[in-house]
């Protein structure tokens, strides 16, 4: 019932190497994770955080993420400013008007400790006898049944992965300024109907295939919006067999020849 998460396995496969950022960046789900990583890596005490060192390293990571073109979320920047603020308060002795003699680092330690406690609680919950994992009732849950009916263990694709796939494809297919041909413009309805028709005949389609005939950025966007619209209506499912593989779309409606209203 141990629950070594995939991310941690990845981390363990790669011994600590300060230059080995590509892999490690993957695992930072946010500024808190990054901070905890730095605390652990530097083997410093969470109750006595060397703010200057940690701040410098934190900012170095942010720079790296920018260089690697990883979208640095605003959350990372908020934490950076908190760190810099604490650092400045520590640098100027006696200037601490905000606090009442409280260690400015408390502002950092308190939420970190709270986060750790909740992380631990999450681990404890996973150690319980979970339904459909450790114990089974007469009826399997609907959620589990859906998984069993699937042909493969699919990874559901989230919006960010889909956006990434879209961005990559547009960059490949329309490098530089999009040339706008006087091509016929599809409406969203027409594109939706086209995708539905393709799904009806083929069942499963690769994400990229649906853009095969698109020539302008607006066509790409309309196709993309149509896919989102269909997914939102529950008519198709977006998945990958493997994080490395191409994203696929699958029809979730019965092929009975009736024209489904979207």
């Amino acid at each position: 019932m141990a629950h070594p998460e995939e991310n941690e396995i990845i981390e363990r496969k790669h011994p600590p190497d300060p230059t080995d950022y590509e892999v490690k960046l993957e695992i930072f789900q946010g500024p808190m994770e990054l901070l905890l990583h730095l605390i652990r890596k530097n083997e410093v005490d969470i109750f006595d955080i060397p703010i200057a060192t940690i701040t410098d390293q934190y900012l170095a990571y942010l720079d790296l993420m920018k260089i690697l073109n990883i979208n640095v979320a605003g959350d990372f920047l908020v934490m950076a400013s908190t760190l810099l603020h604490i650092k400045s308060r520590l640098l100027i002795p006696g200037s601490d008007e905000e606090g009442d003699g409280e260690d400015p680092r408390e502002e950092l330690t308190r939420p970190l400790l709270e986060y750790l406690r909740l992380k631990e609680a999450a681990g404890e919950l996973l150690d319980r006898e979970l339904l459909d994992r450790d114990v089974f009732a007469h009826q399997l849950s609907a959620d589990f049944k859906r998984q069993l009916e699937g042909e493969d263990s699919f990874l559901e694709v989230n919006l960010f992965q889909l956006l990434d796939a879209f961005r990559t494809m547009v960059e490949q297919r329309l490098p530089g300024t999009p040339l706008i041909l006087a091509a016929e413009q599809y409406s969203l309805e027409e594109k939706t109907a086209y995708i539905l028709e393709s799904l009806k005949t083929r069942g499963v389609i690769y994400f990229q295939e649906l853009f095969a005939e698109d020539r302008t950025i607006s066509e790409f966007i309309i196709t993309f919006l149509a896919i989102l619209e269909l997914a939102h209506s529950g008519l198709l499912r977006i998945f990958q067999n493997d994080p490395e593989k191409d994203i696929q779309l699958e029809a979730l409606f019965e092929d009975s020849g009736d024209s489904r209203h979207v």
Binding site: R40, N42, E43, I46, F47, L112, L113, L116, L118, E120
Partner: peptide, 12 residues
């Protein structure tokens, strides 16, 4: 729910 535990040490 199990009670939340106090974190006594982390890092060093």
């Amino acid at each position: 729910l199990p009670r939340l535990k106090e974190i006594k040490a982390f890092g060093a």
